[in-house]
């Protein structure tokens, strides 16, 4: 042990003896401060869920359940969006199929497809088919 360390530990001994002479009021205040600190001790959520005590545990559960609710809402929204997209695509396909079958049933020559009046005819034909 070198000189510095020796002096250091001798001073330490003296200072430790001084701890016993701390005023009673100060000791009481330190006790109260300690109790106040312990009441606010941070606990890990796992321990609290196991013991089921404290409002912190409730908060942890709330976080878990609110996350589950959010997840369910996102899933429902995704399923809804996918369903709408599928339904629209199906409708469009059916429309094209109707037009195709109408065209085929009329036995038109290929030149009719490049005819300027084709669109007008198509509209008329689709109107009449709807009636």
């Amino acid at each position: 042990m070198n000189d510095d360390t020796e002096i250091g530990y001798k001073v330490r001994q003296t200072l430790n003896q001084g701890l016993d002479t701390i005023d009673n009021n100060v000791s009481r205040r330190l006790d109260l401060n300690r109790q106040a600190a312990l009441e606010n001790q941070r606990m890990s959520a796992g321990w609290l869920r196991l013991t089921g005590i404290g409002h912190v545990a409730e908060l942890a559960e709330f976080v878990v359940f609110s996350n589950a609710r959010t997840l369910l809402a996102v899933m429902a929204l995704s399923i809804g969006a996918a369903g709408t997209y599928y339904w629209k695509a199906l409708e469009q396909t059916q429309e094209f199929a109707e037009i195709d079958s109408a065209l085929l049933a009329d036995e038109l020559p290929p030149s009719a497809y490049i005819d300027r009046g084709f669109n007008a005819w198509l509209e008329r034909a689709s109107d009449s088919s709807l009636q």
């Binding site: 200072l15 001084g18 701890l19 701390i22 100060v26 000791s27 330190l30 401060n33 300690r34 600190a37 312990l38 001790q41 606990m43 321990w47 609290l48 196991l50 013991t51 005590i53």
Partner: peptide, 24 residues
Amino acid sequence: MRTLGSQKELSDFLSSVERRAFKQ
């Protein structure tokens, strides 16, 4: 109980350091 143990541990720790901390 682990939780109570932890609180006791903190209490013991603070008791062991509070006087020196005050003096510091």
